[in-house]
Design a protein around this nucleic acid. Structure first.
Lengths: 162, 162
DNA sequence: TTTTTATCCTACCACGTTGGTAGGATTAGT
DNA sequence: ACTAATCCTACCAACGTGGTAGGATAAAAA
């Protein structure tokens, strides 16, 4: 799978690296995968995930609280408390998580579903060529993100290890 | 083409609309399309594009200068000066423009080509399941963006008008 | 019932990026 | 010389990101 290797060759100075996913979202995904992997045991406390995945404790705390409020996680307070998944690993996907923290998944605000708003500078949205491209990209991206459930990610990682 | 309609129904409060493309990039694309459409005439001054497409003059000025420095546009100074495309409309695509202004096109910094850098929190990049998903999305997105040349966008818009 | 170990809640803040504005220097046709 | 363009430097307000600090609350174990 040659296309999996994309280490940077000699080339442009690599200034402006501006990835789409916020750290918050990445932390959230990492934590969810971790929890999904260790489901059989007791609820998992934030402190453990923080140590194992090297995520700032208090920041991660706020993230998991948010996931709990969104009903992605269950929480149990007190000693031996912690977090568990609210659904099956097959039912939690990256689209959901990204939408929760980073909002819309789209190049343009006018092609989002949950957060629609027009482009101010747009003269005619119905015949806007850029919009069409953005819409196709959005549809393809969302489809892939929905397919990427926690179970799917764990499965992928198992395959890669061999 | 039902999937082209995506106006927002009753639902979540539509707070966090966080599209990927910066205004700078959108302005750039709009300006480029405009210039491509009016190529036959004299070089096109910033002021005209600013008025017609409703883009702040001084801001657009800086954008077009940047496009010129990147050799996407030619400029001609002085009276009756302005901007012209440096290449054919078939040879200027959205991937190029986006990379110029917004940098990498990717969900994660570890799947970018020109701007590669590892995820700090990543334990093992080679077997990272999230990375695989992000890489597939990147490849699909870049392919579509490269296909979206100025000529292609104009063609799309012509079709839509009918 | 006290201690321990969790979640949960509110407030705060430094830093960088975005989306501009202002003012003028330079260049080139008429 | 005038006019109409690009080009260049500097500045700035507002906002989002990525945190930190400190404690209130809850529950299980001792």
């Amino acid at each position: 799978m040659y296309f999996l290797t994309c280490h940077r060759p000699a080339g442009p100075p690599a200034t402006n690296a501006n990835p789409v996913l916020s750290k918050k979202t990445k932390y959230a995904i990492n934590a969810l995968v971790y929890i999904a992997r260790h489901q059989e045991e007791r609820p998992i406390p934030v402190s453990r995930i923080s140590e194992e995945r090297n995520i700032p404790l208090k920041f991660l705390e706020s993230i998991l609280t948010e996931l709990k409020n969104a009903r992605v996680l269950n929480s149990k307070k007190g000693k031996y408390g912690g977090y568990t998944l609210n659904g099956a690993p097959e039912d939690i996907n990256l689209a959901e998580v990204m939408r929760l923290f980073d909002g819309a998944i789209a190049l343009l605000p006018c092609v989002t579903y949950n957060y629609y708003q027009p482009c101010e500078e747009c003269v005619d949205e119905e015949t806007c060529g850029i919009r069409q491209v953005a819409l196709e990209i959005r549809n393809a991206t969302v489809a892939r993100l929905k397919n990427a459930t926690l179970a799917n990610i764990i499965e992928r990682e198992k395959k890669m290890r061999r």
